[in-house]
Amino acid sequence: MDQIYDHAQDCYPEECCGLMLGKILEPDAQLEKKLFELYPLDNAWEQAESSIRIEESGTPLTATRRYWIAPQDLFNAQKYARTQGWDIIGVYHSHPDHEAVPSECDRKWAWPQYSYVIVAVKNGVPHDFRNWILDDQQQFRAEPVTVVDDVVPSTLETDI
Score class of each variant (00 low, 15 high):
Asp6Trp: 05
Asp6His: 09
Asp6Tyr: 04
Asp6Gln: 15
Ala8Ile: 01
Gln9Asp: 00
Gln9Leu: 05
Asp10Cys: 09
Cys11Gln: 13
Cys11Val: 13
Pro13Glu: 03
Glu14Gln: 14
Glu15Lys: 06
Cys16Phe: 04
Gly18Glu: 09
Met20Arg: 00
Leu21Thr: 01
Gly22Ser: 04
Gly22Val: 03
Lys23Arg: 14
Lys23Gln: 06
Ile24Cys: 03
Leu25Gly: 00
Leu25His: 08
Leu25Gln: 06
Glu26Asp: 14
Pro27Ala: 07
Ala29Pro: 12
Ala29Tyr: 15
Gln30Leu: 10
Lys33Ile: 03
Lys33Asn: 05
Lys33Glu: 09
Leu35Glu: 06
Phe36Cys: 01
Phe36Glu: 09
Glu37Gly: 09
Leu38Ile: 06
Leu38Lys: 00
Tyr39Asp: 07
Ala44Phe: 09
Ala44Tyr: 11
Trp45Leu: 13
Glu46Met: 05
Glu46Ser: 14
Glu49Leu: 03
Glu49Pro: 11
Ile52His: 12
Arg53Met: 10
Ile54Trp: 00
Ser57Asp: 13
Leu61Ile: 06
Thr62Arg: 13
Thr62Asn: 00
Ala63Lys: 02
Thr64Gln: 12
Arg65Trp: 13
Tyr67Ile: 03
Trp68Met: 00
Ile69Glu: 07
Ile69Ala: 03
Ala70Lys: 13
Gln72Thr: 09
Gln72Glu: 15
Leu74His: 04
Phe75Lys: 12
Asn76Cys: 08
Asn76Val: 10
Ala77Met: 03
Gln78Ile: 10
Lys79Pro: 12
Tyr80Glu: 11
Ala81Gly: 11
Thr83Tyr: 05
Thr83Pro: 05
Thr83Glu: 01
Gln84Met: 10
Gln84Arg: 15
Asp87Cys: 06
Ile88Leu: 04
Gly90Glu: 00
Tyr92Trp: 09
Tyr92Thr: 03
Ser94Asp: 06
His95Cys: 10
Pro96Gln: 09
Asp97Gly: 02
Ala100Gln: 02
Glu104Asp: 15
Glu104Thr: 14
Glu104Tyr: 10
Glu104Met: 11
Cys105Ile: 14
Asp106Ile: 10
Lys108Met: 08
Trp111Ser: 07
Trp111Thr: 13
Pro112Leu: 00
Pro112Ala: 14
Gln113Pro: 02
Val117Met: 07
Ile118Arg: 01
Val119Ile: 05
Ala120Arg: 07
Val121His: 06
Val121Cys: 08
Lys122Leu: 12
Asn123Leu: 10
Val125Asp: 00
Pro126Phe: 05
His127Asn: 15
Phe129His: 09
Asn131Gln: 07
Asn131His: 04
Trp132Cys: 11
Trp132Glu: 04
Ile133Trp: 06
Ile133Val: 15
Leu134Tyr: 07
Asp135Tyr: 14
Asp136Met: 05
Gln137Asn: 12
Gln138Asp: 06
Gln138Lys: 10
Phe140Pro: 04
Arg141Asp: 11
Arg141Lys: 12
